[in-house]
Design a protein around this nucleic acid. Structure first.
Length: 508
RNA sequence: GGCAGCGUAGCUCAGUUGGUGAGAGCGCCGGAUUCAUAACCCGGAGGUCGGCAGUUCAAAUCUGCCCGCUGCUACCA
């Protein structure tokens, strides 16, 4: 059986700078990608930017430059952020890439060939100045110069009832098939709360979907229909196919789409319907993660609490930020972050926990054994420790495979507690004076427990874990999960220990 | 308004199909220790399990009502 795994993030809309939400999604997805690679899978990891649509066109016009030049500039910070955060993507797709535009048109033709696209009319309240349609409920009542009541857009611009030619997708014909999909594959939408919402939405009936626009031209042209560009979501969702290698790409179907909970509908209703229409296999799972809020409050420029993730990563270090977001926030739920919370969490887990565990054992090996890795041997409580580590490792894998990233790290921290407890109970610093062999046995068991722990945290703090494994004498080619039982050879010369996870103190 | 969910120790939350005296982490207090990044280890405090009323031999766990909070309720993404 081929162990392959294709996962994607949602693609970011680069009409502004990346915020913490982008960093969070990228980091979580990256941890999963790295986990799968360590677990022996061939992984394809796709991320990118969604560069078409009205808002981009407007922003480019406001900036007085060509849309393509505009997105060339605004997509770069997203790429830079990914690189800074160590996101191990295989491709950073941009929807303005030529191969993607070609694929969109192929997808469109497949849906058309299946009879699911038809030309109709889209009607609504349209603001010429905003180049946008608004819902009746969004309109604001006002009074014109002559004292007559009028309706205005949320931006205060005039709106008029407008009829526009548009291609439509027969989404209404897919409700039953979608409900059957949900019933057969409840894992298709996660977490459960999102699953229930989407199922209820579909059960309430579906209307056909407007699939093209004629009011602006910054998009993928509809084949054979001059003046029409595709609705941005057709273009956006199709990126996953492009990234898989095409309509019949070698990586398709995707195993996992990681998305923000706000775009669940597009990914779990429209997307599978499009694919069914085109006769293409469906992704296995769509996971809608929650939002991370600054001190529990949504970020807004007016509140002055917008946080730049690049600055945050630069300040605390990439691995501290990664660890905090994935350990502190229940994956799937909303979370809150603050400087204090990041410092407290990472000091407790990384400095006092993993880092200190490694340091206390390594320093004893350096001082008492000349830095040579001791041989395994019996010690009090070693069996219980091993049993505990095995059970918790199983819990880690179960949690990871269920996308419960925070649970996986919880299991890791219990392993750290077990190892620290074993170490304290045996007090090797006392054995150093009475029974050097017994001391060496305890140090071996502790270092091996640490090795196992650090192997497991590689997906979360890849850089730090790598440096820690160096210190533990673990060969670069012995860091896969399949190497879990490959103990470091007796006598291996360990480098002089140096703290990998320094404690953060505000004064310093 | 409709549908769904939530409200458990200061904080963040676990609590299977109702049943030994209600839990974890962080924070706090005390003890022990000195290998280690003033870290680690052990122990403790503490909460009317949102409120009221029911069902039951027995409810945080079921039912009803009330209070508070959140999500979804289609074409900006």
């Amino acid at each position: 059986m081929s162990k392959r795994f294709y996962l994607t993030t949602a693609i970011a809309y680069p009409n502004g700078k990346p915020h913490m939400g982008h960093a969070y999604e990228a980091i979580a997805s990256d941890a999963i990608a790295r986990f799968k690679r360590l677990d022996g899978f061939d992984v394809r990891f796709l991320t990118g930017t969604d560069e078409h649509g009205l808002k981009i066109a407007q922003a480019a016009r406001d900036a007085g430059i060509d849309p393509r030049a505009y997105v060339d500039g605004t997509s770069q910070p997203f790429i830079d952020l990914d690189r800074q955060l160590g996101i191990s993507f295989d491709r950073f797709i941009r929807t303005t890439d030529d191969d993607h535009k070609a694929l969109c048109q192929q997808l469109w033709q497949r849906m058309a060939a299946n009879g699911d696209l038809y030309l109709g009319r889209y009607e609504g309240w349209y603001s010429v100045r905003d180049e946008a349609y608004y819902e009746e409920a969004e309109l604001v009542a006002a009074v014109d110069a002559a004292g007559n009541p009028v309706k205005l857009s949320p931006q205060g611009t005039p709106v008029e009832w407008t009829v526009e030619e548009s291609w439509f997708f027969r989404l209404s014909a897919y409700a039953d098939r979608l409900l059957a999909l949900y019933a057969e594959h409840p894992e298709f939408i996660q977490p459960t709360s999102r699953f229930n919402e989407m199922r209820a939405f579909v059960a309430g009936g579906l209307s056909d979907l407007s699939m093209s626009r004629t009011s602006f031209d910054w998009g993928v042209p509809v084949p054979g229909s001059p003046g029409h560009v595709m609705y941005v979501w057709v273009d956006a969702l199709a990126n996953y196919l492009t990234g898989a290698g095409g309509l019949d790409g070698e990586w398709w179907p995707a195993d996992l789409h990681i998305i923000g909970k706000d775009v669940t509908r597009f990914h779990t209703i429209y997307w599978p319907a499009f694919l069914m229409s085109a006769g293409i296999a469906l992704p296995k799972t769509v996971f809608g993660h929650g939002f991370v809020l600054n001190r529990g409050v949504k970020m807004s420029k007016s509140d002055g609490n917008v946080v730049d993730p690049a600055a945050m990563a630069a300040r605390f270090g990439v691995d501290r930020l990664r660890w905090f977001l994935l350990r502190e926030v229940a994956f799937g739920e909303d979370g809150s972050y603050s400087d204090e919370a990041i410092i407290e969490r990472t000091n407790a887990d990384l400095a006092n926990g993993i880092g200190n565990l490694a340091q206390r054992a390594l320093s004893m090996v350096a001082k008492n054994l000349g830095g040579a890795m001791p041989a395994p041997g019996p010690s009090h409580g070693a069996a219980a420790l091993a049993e505990s580590l095995t059970a918790l490792t199983e819990a880690y894998f179960a949690a990871m495979n269920a996308l419960q990233l925070h649970r996986a790290l919880e299991a890791v921290m219990l392993m750290v507690n077990a190892a620290n407890g074993y170490f304290a109970e045996n007090a090797p610093w006392s054995l150093a004076k009475t029974d050097t062999q017994a001391m060496a046995n305890v140090l071996h068991a502790t270092l091996d427990a640490t090795r196992r722990i650090v192997l497991l945290v590689q997906p979360f703090v890849p850089d730090s874990a790598g440096r820690l494994l160096d210190q533990l004498g673990v060969a670069a080619d012995a860091r896969q999960f399949s190497d879990f039982d490959a103990v470091v050879a007796t006598g291996t010369q360990l480098p002089a220990p140096a703290g990998v996870f320094p404690r953060w103190s505000e004064a310093a």
